[in-house]
Amino acid sequence: MQYLGALLPRITRLQALVIGLAVTPLLLGGAGVIALLLFLMASGGTVTGAPEQPIAFDHSVHAGEAAIPCQFCHRGVVTEASATIPSVQQCMFCHGVVATDRPQIQLLQAHWETNTPVDWTRVHRVPDHVRFVHAPHIQAGLDCATCHGDVASMSEVRQVRSLSMGDCQGCHRENSASLDCATCHK
């Protein structure tokens, strides 16, 4: 209040009170709007570290050294929405005989014998209101690495690209793919 007095020396107390009461909510409201805008701009894709997995599956061994094609395990990727994670049966294809003495493989075999799936932790996950479909992307000739980074050299898969709305749309714009909200939102 005394600042107002310094600015406007001839102001009465009552006038100062009225001006103060009128201006304060405006200032607070403005700050609120700015905070809201900042919040909305900041929320969006997050790039996280690699989550812990129940079995220490290593892409650099399988996709890297052993050069197993991605599609051998992620079978849905060319034709479906989901790339899909391979079943235990598919691992046992090799691990029925390969490296059966290692503790991690014995974990895997326990799943096989008890007929239970491995509860892998998701690394990439778009929100529920977003529709993402792998098929058209792979068919448009995009490499897995464009979005997932060099998985073949990763010991643990982690997310390297934000895959936020701006990120998706940036590429869609460059490739004249759809920018219609209904393409990506369900």
């Binding site: 809201l36 805008l37 909305l40 701009m41 709305m165 701006g166 749309q169 940036g170 920018l179 219609d180």
Partner: peptide, 9 residues
Amino acid sequence: VATLGETIP
């Protein structure tokens, strides 16, 4: 545009 940035087509 103000809230979502220039991503709005």
